[in-house]
Nucleic acid binder design. Structure first.
Lengths: 332, 332
DNA sequence: CTGAAAGCGCTTACAG
DNA sequence: CTGAAAGCGCTTACAG
């Protein structure tokens, strides 16, 4: 019967029919466990979300990318959120039970916010894994991890350049650089500003963890300190949304007086008027790339892959416009 | 060795030590498959998201609830998005490979948007399942499915009553009732209005699928047709957000001139000024309840559970206020 | 308390 | 082309 189930070539048509008839009659369903035991593989990968309160849209899109790649194969995805302390030694981390088995999952995709100690713990039990690199905090010491990232720094560079190309010269950066990813974005901004011989100005410290609120506050401070400002690059869409709100309260028009660029290309972009220009990080591609890399590793155990960095894409929308518009408005 | 691993009582301390030493030395990790084969159970449940483009926040919260309940047990969750046609017969639906096995998953939680044919297909292969009931479209014919829902109708009733209690008499409902869940909410609104001898008015048709846009349009139409309107109940937070935007453009103050209630208690509630009063549906509790019911079923095979309906909770915020404020403002 | 054996339900050479 | 047997790596009575 096994041969019928697995489409073995050497089965006579008649036998095949008979067996399939019996299968139907008996409501037979094969045992996945027994098959896996003898096959030695599980066709299961694990998507681990670390240190996040729940699966927000950003990571849901990554998971979606993983899923859409994986769905072309026979693999399936186990979803596990975990949390752990950054400081504790690897051996003190309690790994999810399921990955402590030798053959329950073939490999792991590690998303969420992660620290080197967790990766070390995975190394210890020799589970093949791929990391979503952008939210890694701290360096992985001596070895190159297999990671997929998108280019925060390049995205911010592009965003800034977009404003420069529109004629802006007085461009601020608003975003709390205590967050590592905001720091990379800030660096991209700095490089772009310096490449174009402009003077950069910024607000990178924040009392609040609420990025929307930070945005509103920061833009009013920026305008106060620098009434000539015509454009801002923000740490993410939430900050940009806050900026939009702040501008409305101040009676400043976007983009006529001030152009605003967000980052992450979230749903927030469509909640402002006009919609936000933003940097899309293509989360689904990131997820698909994680999945691809992991499957490559599974087929080629022990092999190390270089970090793969996906480029971002600026999506121009109504929140950014040529600087002349702003001047005309100011002159009117 | 097995006895050591499974903490069998009758193992001498010395033997235990020796065995664990060997386990460490050899980097031994047990085989999940072999154990499951002999145990006969998988400790795996499957979270199926039907007919959705991806895991949005609403369902992510349900999944989170499932997860947080399940994490107190030894179960794990396989995540599978699927899509199928509502009209085709059950036998024509391609079920995810994994649940066609007899012992790969112990049970299934069905979320997303679902139709009776899919449930029938699950019945056919005798997989224990629990359905998230609110997004079921069409009735399940002769038998009671095991489902968990929240009370849309009651939530809308409560929202409307909240406005009545604040003194509002001219309350509109805005929401496209082509969507079944909006229809239930509309019914709750109607019942509340009728219970308080008020005349209800509404806009329940829409050309656009964009609820934000619908909200903006609808509120301006409502005001045009009925300048006396002092409050609106909306289909969900997106509609309410659109209403807020529309009000700003019209120069109408919220809540001073018009009070607004949203539904779902999403992140949007904090994006308006002031924040939206909304009806929380406690997604995580819904998820946890699905998980609890499914595990109950697994322990008690064949048992049918009644649909469990969880109550919603009105979360009052700044977008609703007493009607007197509005009158005072109008008089000023 | 512990060793040795049976058995879970498959797949896959091995004979015929 | 197909039947019968070995073996995957565990758990759990069964002896001792």
């Amino acid at each position: 019967m096994s041969r019928v189930l697995n489409n073995h070539p050497s089965v006579s048509e008649e036998t095949r029919q008979r067996v399939q008839e019996a299968i139907r009659l008996l409501h037979y369903r094969p045992s996945a466990q027994a098959r896996r035991l003898v096959k030695g593989s599980t066709d299961t990968i694990c998507f681990i979300l670390s240190n996040r309160e729940f699966l927000k849209t950003f990571h849901a899109r990554i998971l979606q990318g993983v899923q859409s790649f994986i769905s072309t194969t026979d693999y399936q995805i186990i979803y596990i959120p975990i949390s752990y302390q950054p400081q504790i030694p690897p051996s003190a981390i309690t790994l999810p039970r399921i990955i402590t088995y030798r053959d329950a999952v073939d490999g792991v995709i590690v998303a969420g916010t992660n620290y080197p100690n967790f990766l070390a713990a995975l190394e210890e039990i020799r589970v093949p894994y791929v990391v979503f690199g952008n939210n890694m905090i701290g360096d992985v010491p001596d070895r190159r991890v297999d990671a997929v990232s998108f280019d925060e720094e390049g995205g911010a560079y592009e965003a800034t350049k977009h404003l420069v190309d529109l004629g802006h010269r007085d461009i601020w950066f608003l975003g709390n650089t205590a967050l590592p990813w905001f720091r990379d974005r800030f660096n991209g901004y700095l490089r772009a500003v310096s490449d174009h011989d402009l003077r950069g100005r910024w607000i990178t410290e924040s009392d609040t963890k609420d990025n929307v609120q930070f945005g509103s506050l920061a833009i009013s401070q920026a305008i106060e300190r620098d009434p000539e400002v015509t454009a801002v690059v923000t740490g993410n869409d939430h900050v940009a949304y806050g900026v939009w709100k702040g501008l409305r309260e101040l009676g400043v028009a976007m983009p006529d007086d001030i152009s605003v660029v967000g980052f992450d290309d979230t749903e927030l972009c469509y909640l402002t008027d006009p919609p936000l220009t933003s940097v899309s990080v293509h989360n689904e591609e990131v997820g698909a790339e994680c999945a691809r890399m992991l499957l490559d590793k599974l087929h080629d155990p022990g092999k190390r892959f270089r970090e793969r960095v996906l480029s971002t894409e600026l999506i121009p929308r109504g929140s950014t416009g040529p600087v002349c518009t702003a001047r005309a408005a100011a002159g009117a």
